[in-house]
Amino acid sequence: MKIAFTTSGSELTAPLDQRFGRAFKFLVYDLEKDTFEVIDNKQNLDAAQGAGIQSAGTVARSGADALVSGHCGPKAFRVLLAAGIKVFYSDVPTVSEALDAYRQGKLIESGTADVEGHWE
């Protein structure tokens, strides 16, 4: 199983980006192999419209089964739902802490978007 985290860096110690659509990067962690890859999200950082939709598409194509981010807007959530990706919200500072929280079952799957579009 693969799990995607929004982040501004390229390592597990990097901060967990609270934004989804305009996150700098996605760190996709493979729980079976204990390896990860980092996907750039630069194209969406400057998008006026549709950043969340695009980002959700990127996460879906990465093969991730779940996403951990700070927040997620309604359009992105609709796409993630359609792609069968579970969404978890977390406010921990780093990716590795979010990963630990996930492994320990401390994160609760969300059934809805938690912010309006363009919230930040």
Binding site: Q49, G50, I53, A60, K75, R78, V79, A82
Partner: peptide, 14 residues
């Protein structure tokens, strides 16, 4: 314009 998203199923339309 990212108004249509598809994952091998009926596309989502925005």
């Amino acid at each position: 314009y990212h108004a249509i998203v598809s994952f091998g199923t009926t596309p989502l339309i925005f």
